[in-house]
């Protein structure tokens, strides 16, 4: 295996890991703070992809400005969708058994696939152009766009770390995650914290969709695979941990690339094998803390 080949495959892997990290960190954040496993989280990823398609291909055109507008729009739109989902749909269920929350997000997931079909139609939505050109590595080629995605995802990871470690609201979220009753007793507005957490998590997923779709295309049902892979990522990394999502996404992406190169038969299966092993050896994930179930 040549150095060039190893390098391009590393970039492919990092691109894939970047997308997985953005989806999974949002899912992990929401679970960590609210103990809700949002099955519609993958559908938010899909919505992000469609919003970005609409902005870049239908409104502005596949120019750098169009793509950037797509990223920003899907981030904002999904933040709003996330906030409304928490406020209107999920909040009435906090006092109910947790399987009802799970079931509601499942309902949202299957309904959103059809909503997308009603608005955009059932066909693949394809970005016919990538901005920013290409770079050559030996006789391989890498779109600069992939590097932009990797860089953006890295910056967002750092921002998230700073947010939770340094800002007051980030610290409050962590406190509320640890124990909402105490947080409320200390005078924090847990309602506001929950709605912001849900909005932030959903926005991350929407952003992931916006970044991924120019290369991976947008289609109804793309959330179903994404959500189950994100489960694997956050279980491996540890639920509720941002660093865990980074490591989980890297493991998932590396496992996939290695299998593609070496043993394609195991490409689909390996991630679940890793997930099972991690759950057996260290159930809280590589970087997770003990999760206290709330009832």
């Amino acid at each position: 295996m040549s150095i060039d080949y190893a390098l391009v495959q590393a970039i492919n892997t990092l691109f894939y890991a970047s997308i997985l990290f953005l989806i999974a960190s949002g899912l992990s954040l929401i679970y960590g703070i609210m103990r809700i496993l949002n099955l519609a989280h993958g559908s938010f990823y899909m919505l992000g992809a469609y919003i970005s398609y609409t902005a870049a291909m239908l409104w502005i055109g596949p120019t750098p400005a169009g793509f950037v507008a797509g990223f920003v729009l899907s981030l904002a739109f999904l933040a709003a969708v996330g906030a409304l989902t928490e406020r209107i749909l999920i909040r009435p269920l906090y006092s109910k058994p947790s399987e009802l929350q799970l079931l509601l997000t499942f309902a949202l997931m299957i309904a959103l696939d059809d909503v997308v079909k009603m608005i955009w139609g059932p066909e693949y939505k394809s970005f016919t152009k990538l901005p920013w050109g290409y770079m050559s590595i030996g006789h391989y080629s890498v779109p600069i766009y992939m590097l932009v995605v990797i860089a953006s995802s890295t910056i967002i990871g750092l921002l998230l770390w700073w947010f939770f470690a340094k800002t007051t609201i980030g610290k409050q979220m962590r406190a509320a995650a640890y124990n909402p009753e105490i947080a409320a007793a200390l005078g924090m507005n847990t309602d506001l914290l929950f709605v912001s957490a849900f909005a932030l998590g959903s926005a991350l997923s929407g952003f992931a969709g916006a970044m991924a779709s120019p290369i991976l295309t947008a289609y109804p049902g793309m959330g179903t695979d994404a959500i189950v892979l994100s489960f694997a990522v956050i279980v491996i990394g540890g639920m509720g941990s941002i660093l865990g999502s980074v490591v989980g996404a890297l493991i998932a992406a590396i496992a996939r690339t290695v299998m593609v190169i070496v043993y394609p038969l195991l490409e689909v299966a390996l991630i679940y094998i890793v997930m099972i092993i991690v759950l057996l050896v260290k159930p809280t994930g590589l970087f997770g803390k003990e999760i206290v179930e709330r009832r």
Partner: peptide, 19 residues
């Protein structure tokens, strides 16, 4: 043809009204 949407709505109604 949007039967999944219908299923989703029914499930949501169930969650709120007939848990």
């Amino acid at each position: 043809e949007y039967w999944l949407f219908v299923m989703g709505v029914i499930l949501a109604i169930l969650v709120y009204i007939l848990p």
